[in-house]
Amino acid sequence: MAYDKFTVLTSTAVPLPIENVDTDQIIPARFLKATERKGFGDNLFRDWRYNNDESPRQDFVLNNPLYGGKILVGGKNFGSGSSREHAAWAIYDYGFRCVVSSFFADIFKGNAINVGILPVQVSEAFLDQIFKAIEADPKTVITVDLAAQTITLDATGAQESFAINGYKKHNMINGFDDIDYLQAMKAEIKAFASTHSI
């Protein structure tokens, strides 16, 4: 699915300072029964966000009106576990366009880029700085510049660079996806397949 172009994102952020946030927490398996990519944001972090009786849990950050924005900041090893792309869909559908962490699980990172969410990996120290800034001021504004590959705390100017390969960066800036690329090289793939025996 093609997605919105990603260039510069300036937004407040939602802090989730928990490590090893797995994709079963991002979206529990019982909410994977849809056959269309619709409405997954309603069940984002379902079991941390709601009590068993469906009432919102006041101690969870998504239920705290102080916090909001298009950037989700998570503890290290974000997105471990199941390969369910539904986790990335839920984050996107809720309204996030960028997830910041000091470490991402591989499959989640790939899924995020494939649906148009930019995973920004920062140092432990910078992540800590972001969490502290948001704790001090929930309206802390962060700017993520994909072309420059930088993330900046606007108030202080504190900045760090992040890595992304040139191919994926080009795709995100232009709103292209891998399927467009692969469709354009079908003849080459078929030629490969004809000589490839297993």
């Binding site: 390969s83 792309e85 499959i107 899924n111 494939n114 996806d177 399927i179 692969l182």
Partner: peptide, 13 residues
């Protein structure tokens, strides 16, 4: 393991 976008890639290419 792969995500659903990649399932679509494998099916199509």
């Amino acid at each position: 393991g792969i995500g659903t976008s990649e399932v679509e890639m494998v099916l199509s290419s």
